[in-house]
Simulated assay, not measured.
Amino acid sequence: MIEEDLNLTVKTERVASWEEKDVFRYILDNGEMQVEMTNYGGIISRILTSDREGKLSNVVLALENIPDYFTKNGPYLGAAVGRYANRIGTASFKLDGETFHLTKNNGENSLHGGSKGFGVKVWDPEVYKNDNAVGVKMTYLSVDGEEGFPGNLKTTLWMELTSANELKLRFESTTDKKTVVNLTNHSYFNLSGITEDVRGHELQIFAEAITPTGSGQIPTGELLEVHGTPFDFTTLTKLGAQMDALGEGFDHNYVTKRENSTELKKIAMVKHPKSGRTMTVYSTAPGVQLYTANHVRDFVGADGKIYQPHWALCLEPEAWPDSPNKPGFPSADLAPGEQYVHEIVYKFSVER
Rank of each mutant, 00 (worst) to 15 (best):
residue 22 D to Y: 07
residue 52 R to I: 05
residue 233 F to A: 11
residue 236 L to N: 08
residue 265 K to E: 10
residue 306 I to E: 12
residue 316 E to R: 06
residue 237 T to A: 11
residue 349 S to M: 07
residue 329 F to W: 05
residue 241 A to R: 10
residue 166 E to Q: 15
residue 92 S to A: 12
residue 57 S to L: 10
residue 127 V to Q: 00
residue 321 P to C: 04
residue 329 F to K: 01
residue 36 E to H: 08
residue 3 E to I: 12
residue 140 Y to T: 02
residue 165 N to Y: 02
residue 148 G to W: 03
residue 325 N to R: 10
residue 176 D to L: 10
residue 279 M to P: 08
residue 237 T to S: 15
residue 194 I to L: 15
residue 243 M to W: 12
residue 340 Y to G: 03
residue 325 N to L: 01
residue 112 H to R: 06
residue 190 N to M: 04
residue 187 S to Y: 04
residue 101 H to T: 14
residue 178 K to M: 06
residue 283 S to L: 10
residue 314 C to P: 06
residue 203 L to D: 08
residue 89 G to T: 05
residue 79 A to I: 02
residue 296 V to Y: 00
residue 16 A to F: 05
residue 244 D to T: 07
residue 160 E to M: 08
residue 49 T to N: 01
residue 247 G to H: 07
residue 250 F to Y: 14
residue 316 E to H: 09
residue 20 E to C: 03
residue 321 P to K: 10
residue 41 G to C: 05
residue 282 Y to I: 06
residue 188 Y to P: 11
residue 221 G to I: 09
residue 227 H to V: 09
residue 273 P to E: 09
residue 160 E to V: 03
residue 289 Q to E: 07
residue 238 K to Q: 15
residue 121 K to N: 11
residue 313 L to N: 06
residue 145 G to E: 10
residue 128 Y to S: 01
residue 328 G to M: 11
residue 305 K to L: 13
residue 142 S to F: 02
residue 149 F to D: 01
residue 122 V to N: 04
residue 133 A to E: 15
residue 38 T to W: 02
residue 345 V to R: 13
residue 1 M to N: 13
residue 126 E to M: 03
residue 164 A to H: 11
residue 57 S to A: 14
residue 333 D to I: 03
residue 206 F to D: 14
residue 172 E to Q: 15
residue 2 I to L: 15
residue 262 T to L: 09
residue 269 M to F: 03
residue 77 L to C: 05
residue 37 M to Y: 02
residue 123 W to I: 07
residue 316 E to D: 13
residue 186 H to D: 08
residue 185 N to W: 04
residue 261 S to A: 13
residue 335 A to F: 06
residue 196 E to V: 05
residue 135 G to I: 01
